[in-house]
Write a protein that binds this DNA or RNA. Structure first.
Lengths: 247, 247
DNA sequence: GGTCCATTTGACCGATCGGTCAAGATTCGT
DNA sequence: ACGAATCTTGACCGATCGGTCAAATGGACC
């Protein structure tokens, strides 16, 4: 009886402050079993701390979740910003963006699954939205360089498509792994995926370069037609911006 | 968390047997708040039944979840099968498949979100896998008509890409709706999405027809080259394996 | 010494959870 | 009409949940 060593404590050595250890434990646990599946007692146990300390430092379970989420989104946005910062042709920068996204998601697939999981929970997805919105605007700005505002190749369409092409490979990995008998996030299959997404990006960019007007065909009303990037830049407020566009 | 969705108790539609009413209530609740967020008491309350009846008919909460899941997957697979059944060129059938998928997911976006949510839960995703696997093989067989087995345009790559392009539009709808100020699942935006996915399908099919060899470039070994669908059918019937990898 | 303040502890609370049970009510074959 | 099988009820169980609290620690400054 007594304390069963079945629950991995993983970090009983006093690495970092108590607050950091709780945050790290919560991070791991939320990703493993989702928000509802984690109890404050579990978090404290893995952090080698007392349950009450969870509430002392983070006030509530939702506060803890929020802390974990924003830490992740910061890393997420930083990874994408770095990929977009360097110079190069539009095509090179798109490839870098998609590469960085794939690498980040493959490394943090549990986090990606967590976010997708909480999407269905109406009480927690305001938290997700708060982090998602600036990230979306950031990427949409980047896509606005190559894609029109409306029509069947609009920036928002490409965003969802490329985002889904990369993300679902990672979030569906546990399922696909069983169906295929191989891990989609391990070296051979992950590189296959990278090849595919790059191929897809090139396909779309070729089509956009070949006939930029036809891609916009489905858009009915003529729009005021200011500089597209300028209009878009004005829309995204100054606060959320991370990297000024270098072209 | 919040007790908003709990208050839906009185005036249960006397339609159907008690078992059906419980199943319908569970369906709605699981989609609203996920597996962990639903209690047997909630289900019984909404169904206008007694809590013990949930366990009488479905043995456990997981049994109830399994019943809900398989009912949904049956409808899902039926929708896709109908789209693939009719005759036509490969391109027409691919368009119909994607259309049917988009329509089904737009109508059942809550279900799509539920499935994605439970993907992160290792204790429930065997249940999801049991339903996902045959559906995957079914669609992969269809894709095998147009796509090679390996390389950057392999059937499995296209599956994840198109599936993600359609599905994420629906599962991310609550988030995108707030960012855009419009509902992605309502008429105007949903048709925009359909245009985009059709455009994307054409882009890929054109590329595959133009140079079927180059798409397969990354695949080194020459394969026996029997009828692709036949070989795939035999393979998937025989065992869980889909494609032996040579690299 | 003493005092202040952030940190830590362990016991405690009410509510809710999934699941069981024995006994009543209803339906049905005969 | 009668017993058997099926369905329904409400009370009940042990466990766990998020969250609180008063008291104990321990170091920093005077």
């Amino acid at each position: 009886m007594d304390q069963n060593p079945r629950m991995a404590k993983a970090a009983p050595p006093p690495s970092g402050t108590t607050q950091d250890r709780i945050l790290a434990a919560a991070e791991a646990l939320f990703c493993e079993v989702g928000f509802a599946g984690v109890s404050a007692r579990d978090v404290a146990l893995r952090a080698g701390a007392q349950k009450a300390l969870v509430f002392y430092y983070f006030h509530s379970k939702e506060g803890l979740f929020e802390a974990v989420l924003s830490r992740y989104y910061d890393a997420h946005q930083a990874a994408l910003a770095e990929a977009l910062a360097a110079a190069g042709t539009v095509r090179e920068r798109m490839h870098r963006l998609v590469d960085a996204y794939l690498d980040f998601m493959a490394r943090h697939s549990a986090y990606a699954r967590l976010v997708q999981a909480e999407l269905s929970n109406p009480s927690t997805h305001p938290l997700v939205e708060k982090n998602f919105a600036p990230l979306y605007r950031f990427v949409e700005d980047a896509l606005g360089e190559v894609a029109p505002d409306e029509g069947r190749a609009a920036a928002r369409q490409l965003f969802v498509t490329f985002q889904g092409a990369v993300l679902n490979w990672c979030t569906y990995a546990p399922l696909l792994s069983r169906v295929w008998g191989q891990d989609p996030l391990a070296a051979p299959l992950l590189e296959d995926r990278r090849e595919h997404v790059r191929w897809l990006v090139d396909l779309v960019l070729d089509a956009l370069e070949r006939s930029p007007a036809s891609a916009r065909r489905a858009a009915p009303a003529a729009r005021p037609k200011g500089g597209r990037a300028a209009a878009r830049g004005a829309r995204s407020r100054a606060s959320g911006r991370v990297t000024p566009r270098a072209r």
